[in-house]
Amino acid sequence: MAKSSIKLRAKVKDDVVEVKALIKHPMESGNRKDKKTGEAIPAHFITEVVCEHGGKTRLSASLSGGVSKNPYVSFKFKGGASGDPITMNWKDNKGKSDSVESKIK
């Protein structure tokens, strides 16, 4: 399997799972111009990120081109245990997507 564009880390501490994700993506807002040609660089950014665990959606995030390149997303939830599988997936404005499965530490 090709390496996922998502680095997903989840760690449980005092009953709370802290999820940290780093996604490789250009996150072009569509407002930038190519410095040499002066042409607008088309928008290309992640629109949705969903994190699932135990058959439940723990977080769904809608993003815009205002989120930094190679976006970092972090959140916390209760109800996870060490060793549980956890998944994250994203899709972008061009219809591309990727997903990853990890285990809670």
Binding site: K56, S60, A61, G66, V67, S68, Y72, V73, S74, K78
Partner: peptide
């Protein structure tokens, strides 16, 4: 140019916390 940057919808059990990097 576009004020809305991100919207996090919390799922079951999620704490009221979110972190990301913005432009």
């Amino acid at each position: 140019p576009v004020p809305m940057i991100a919207a996090f919808t919390l799922g079951e059990g999620a704490l009221a916390f979110a972190r990301t990097n913005i432009k």
